[in-house]
C-alpha cells in the first residue's frame, strides 16, 4: 500500500515537473540583453539535470513499487560492483563537463567587457539608485567615498574631468545595442544591481568599485531591483531602466544639467 502510493507520488512529481517546465509559465522573463549565452547555459543545465531528475526518481518509484515487502520475498545479497560504480562515475563526470565546460567560456566573456563600451556609474544607497554619465569628454570624474560628506554622490568637483558629468536620480537611460559597462559604487551598505531581463547581476560594495557589462538589445522600460539585502526598505529599492535608440539617448543626455551646473563648489 505505502509502496504503491509512494511510487504514484513520485511519478506524479516527475510528470508535474516536466509539464510545468514544458509549459514555460515559470521560465525566465524575455531576454533584453546580449546574454543569450547565459540563457543557453541555463537550458543546457536544465536538460542535463532534468534527465538525471526524471531517471533517478522513476528508478526510485520503480524500486518502491517492485521491491516493497511481500510475503515470501527475500532480498538479494550483493554489496559491490566495481564496474557499475566506475561507469556511473564516468557518466556523472561527463554530464558535469557538458555543463561546466561551456559555462566557463561564457563566464570568461562575462568578466571581460569590450573596449568600446559606454561606462556608466551606478551608485546605490539606502534605498535608491543614482546614475552618472560621462559628459562630452567621455570620461567620468574622480570620486572618493570621503566626499559623501560634501555632496550626495561623493564626486570630486575640483576635478576638471568631472565638470561635464551628468548625475540623475531618475530612470537609467541606456542606448540600444551599445555595450554598457556599469561601474557600481555604494554609499552605505551592500546593494546589488539587478535587472531580470538583462540577466547580469553584481553587488555594489561600499569602499570599492565593482562592475558588470551587457548590451541592451530591446527597447522598452524595465525594473531595476536590488538583489542584496540592504535593510528595511530593501524590497522598495527600485528604479526604472529605459532602453531607447542611440539618437533618443543622446538627445536626452544633452538635455540634462551637468555636475558643474548642479553641484556647488
Amino acid at each position: 500500500m505505502q509502496g504503491i502510493l509512494l511510487a504514484i507520488v513520485l511519478v506524479l512529481l516527475v510528470i508535474g515537473a516536466v509539464v510545468l517546465t514544458m509549459s514555460g509559465a515559470l521560465w525566465l522573463p524575455t531576454l533584453a540583453s546580449n546574454w543569450g549565452a547565459i540563457d543557453n547555459m541555463l537550458v543546457i543545465t536544465l536538460i542535463v539535470t532534468g534527465i538525471a531528475f526524471v531517471v533517478l526518481n522513476l528508478i526510485l518509484a520503480y524500486i518502491v513499487f517492485r521491491y516493497r515487502a511481500r510475503d515470501g520475498q527475500k532480498a538479494a545479497f550483493f554489496a559491490e560492483n566495481h564496474r557499475l560504480e566506475r561507469n556511473l562515475i564516468l557518466v556523472t563526470a561527463l554530464g558535469i563537463i557538458v555543463m561546466l565546460g561551456p559555462g566557463l567560456f561564457v563566464y570568461s566573456e562575462f568578466i571581460h567587457p569590450p573596449q568600446n563600451a559606454l561606462v556608466i556609474e551606478v551608485l546605490g544607497q539606502q534605498w535608491r539608485w543614482s546614475f552618472r554619465y560621462p559628459g562630452t569628454d567621455g570620461k567620468l570624474g574622480r570620486t572618493d567615498p570621503k566626499l559623501f560628506a560634501q555632496n550626495a554622490v561623493g564626486i570630486d568637483i575640483t576635478d576638471p574631468v568631472a565638470q561635464d558629468d551628468v548625475v540623475v536620480h531618475g530612470p537609467l537611460h541606456l542606448p540600444l545595442n551599445r555595450p554598457i559597462i556599469i561601474k557600481l559604487r555604494s554609499k552605505d551598505v551592500l546593494h546589488s544591481f539587478y535587472v531580470p531581463e538583462f540577466r547580469a547581476k553584481m553587488d555594489a560594495v561600499p569602499g570599492m568599485v565593482t562592475r558588470l557589462w551587457f548590451t541592451p538589445t530591446k527597447t522598452g522600460t524595465f525594473d531595476l531591483l536590488c538583489a542584496e539585502l540592504c535593510g528595511t526598505a530593501h524590497f522598495q529599492m527600485r528604479s526604472k531602466v529605459i532602453v531607447e535608440s542611440p539618437e533618443e539617448f543622446e538627445r536626452w543626455l544633452q538635455a540634462q544639467p551637468t555636475v558643474a551646473q548642479t553641484i556647488k563648489k
Binding site: 513520485l10 512529481l13 525566465l28 549565452a37 547565459i38 547555459m41 541555463l42 543545465t45 536544465l46 542535463v48 539535470t49 538525471a52 531528475f53 533517478l56 526518481n57 526510485l60 558535469i96 555543463m99 561546466l100 559555462g103 566557463l104 561564457v106 563566464y107 562575462f110 546589488s192 539587478y194 531580470p196 540577466r199 547580469a200 547581476k201 538583489a227 542584496e228
Partner: peptide, 24 residues
C-alpha cells in the same frame, strides 16, 4: 528524493555563469 532535486539544482548555482541570473 529531496536530496536528488536539491543536489541537482545546486548544479545551476555552482556553475558560475548560471548562478548570475539566479543568485539571490
Amino acid at each position: 528524493s529531496t536530496f536528488i532535486i536539491g543536489g541537482l539544482t545546486g548544479l545551476f548555482l555552482g556553475n558560475v555563469i548560471a548562478d548570475v541570473p539566479l543568485h539571490d
